[in-house]
Design a protein around this nucleic acid. Structure first.
Lengths: 153, 153
DNA sequence: TATGAAAGTTTTAAATA
DNA sequence: TATTTAAAACTTTCATA
C-alpha cells in the first residue's frame, strides 16, 4: 500500500494541509500544474492512504471545552488482556484526543479535552474504575501556544 | 465575538468534524434541515471563529515522519523577554505540532513530529542553542493509539 | 497532460411561512 | 426572523484527444 511521492505530490499536500477549502483550479495554479493531474494525484494519495481524511477544525474554547490535560500513566500490568481493555477504553472515550504508548518508565501519555476540572475528574474516576493503573500524573494546560496537525513537508 | 449555538448548529459541527468532504445536501439531510439554513449557519460559525479551518489530515508514517516525541520542559527563566523568544521559537518550528504552557512543576509540553531520532536531536540542539532551558525530558512514542482533533460534541 | 462537456455543488436572491 | 424555492456561478469528475 505504499505510494511513491514526487515534488508535485508534496506541493499539493502542502496546499491541502494549509487550506482544505481551495478548489482544484486554485491548487493547480498554486503548484504550477493543471486540474487533471492534480485531481488524479489527490485520488491516488487518498486511495494509498497518504490522505486520511478531510475535516473541519473547531475552536475548543468557543464550544465550552476550556480544559486540556496531558496525562502521564504508569502501569504495573503488562499482559495482553489488560492492554486490550485499556486501549479499548481510550478509543471509546471521546474526551481522549491523543493516546500514545511510550518507551521508558512512563507507559502512556494522553491528551484529554474536557469542559472543566470537574469533567476531568469524572473522566479520571471512570477510567481507573475500568482498568487498574499504577500511577497517574495530570498536567493542566494553562495556555495553548500552538496546535496543528500539519506535517512539516 | 461569541456565537450562541443551538442544537442544529451542534449537529452540523458533528457532521463537519466527522467528514469534511460531505456536500451541503448530505449534511442537511443528516441533520434534518435543508441547504440554505445549513449554509448560513456554517458561514456564521466561520465568521464567529467557531470553525477555525478546513484541512486534510495526512498519514505521518507514509510521509516519512516515523518519530513522535512528547517533550517535557522545565525552565528557571520566567521573565517576559525569555518567554517571548521561547514562544516564537516554538511557533516558528514546523516540527512542533503542539505546545502548551502548563500549571505545576513542568513548565511546557511539546509534541514534536520528525523523521527519526536523529532529526529529533537536530531539533533539540537547535532549540536549546536558541533559548536556555533548565531541564528537558523527551518521551518517545512507540505506538499512536489514537489521534484526533474531534471535540466530544 | 490538456481540453472540455456533463453532473453535481455552492452561493445568492427572491418569495414564503 | 428563519426557511424554502429557484436560478446563476462555480467545481468536480471523467471521456477523449
Amino acid at each position: 500500500m505504499s505510494v511513491r511521492l514526487d515534488e508535485l505530490d508534496r506541493k499539493i499536500l502542502v496546499q491541502l494541509q494549509q487550506d482544505g477549502g481551495r478548489s482544484l483550479d486554485e491548487i493547480a495554479k498554486a503548484v504550477g500544474s493543471s486540474k487533471t493531474p492534480v485531481w488524479n494525484r489527490i485520488r491516488k494519495m487518498r486511495e494509498g492512504g497518504v490522505i486520511k481524511q478531510q475535516t473541519y477544525v473547531l475552536d475548543a474554547d468557543s464550544l465550552g471545552f476550556e480544559a486540556c490535560f496531558f496525562v502521564l500513566i504508569r502501569t504495573s500490568e503488562h499482559d495482553a488482556d489488560w492492554q486490550a481493555r485499556f486501549l479499548k477504553a481510550l478509543r471509546d472515550r471521546p474526551e481522549v484526543q491523543e493516546a500514545h504508548r511510550l518507551a521508558g518508565d512512563i507507559d502512556y501519555i494522553l491528551k484529554v479535552r474536557v469542559e472543566n476540572a470537574r469533567a476531568y475528574d469524572v473522566f479520571y474516576q471512570a477510567l481507573i474504575s475500568e482498568v487498574k493503573v499504577h500511577n497517574v500524573t495530570a498536567l493542566l494546560s494553562m495556555e495553548e501556544i500552538k496546535s496543528t496537525t500539519m506535517l512539516p513537508l
